[in-house]
């Protein structure tokens, strides 16, 4: 069991990295990677929401949707759960920890439309994961997202000092850099051996 979980973790974090290999969460990946600091904040916020959201949707699927044969309401339920959850987390964090709120607060509203969150929730059902597997998968996937985000932020900070041709200024050069990063991450495939 532990071996299986480790396999899931390595695969979700590195081999099939959510942003660089699966293209989930590309918008925040490009949008919030200008500074390493904000990349760290976004990564932490996503990790938190993704883990909680995937566990909650997993429970809803098992306890409500499947017993009542309402699988066709999956998409609509999941997105509402995620939106409500983000609101809830925002309120709780604001009340309990002003420090944490300051660090994560501005990223939370952006997370509702992060397709990586909904993606994890749906993938978990497609793969028919159990509770522990879901937990591992969500945490590893979000850690992989955070890793990619921080790495890209590092590259972008250096890019600010470099000469960039006019046509490539802005998002174009960032996308090319992301492509190089994705290429580097391809080196991780073949890492997982049964």
């Amino acid at each position: 069991m532990a071996g299986e979980l480790a396999l899931i973790a390595v695969s979700a974090m590195l081999v099939n990295n959510f942003v660089l290999a699966r293209f989930l969460g590309v918008c925040p990946f490009l949008g919030v990677s200008r500074k390493t600091e904000s990349a760290l904040g976004m990564g932490a916020a996503v990790m938190f929401v993704m883990t909680v959201a995937s566990l909650v949707t997993w429970l809803i699927q098992r306890l409500v949707l499947v017993p009542f044969h309402l699988e066709y309401l999956q998409t609509i339920t999941y997105i509402l759960v995620i939106a409500a959850l983000v609101q809830l987390v925002e309120m709780v964090v604001q009340k309990t920890s002003p420090v944490l709120y300051q660090a994560l607060g501005i990223f939370l509203p952006l997370i509702t439309t992060n397709c990586a969150i909904l993606g994890v929730a749906i993938l978990v059902q497609q793969k028919a994961y159990g509770f522990l597997e879901t937990l591992t998968f969500a945490m590893a996937a979000s850690a992989g997202f955070g890793l990619a985000l921080v790495l890209l932020a590092g590259i972008r900070e250096s890019l600010e000092l470099a000469f960039v041709p006019k046509a490539f200024q802005g998002n174009a050069i960032v996308l090319v850099a992301a492509g190089m990063l994705s290429l580097a991450f391809m080196g991780f495939s073949g890492l997982v051996r049964g």
């Binding site: 396999l7 695969s11 081999v15 099939n16 495939s189 073949g190 997982v192 051996r193 049964g194």
Partner: peptide, 8 residues
């Protein structure tokens, strides 16, 4: 199921 493919 072959668990040891190149990418899954």
């Amino acid at each position: 199921t072959a668990p040891d493919g190149y990418s899954g």
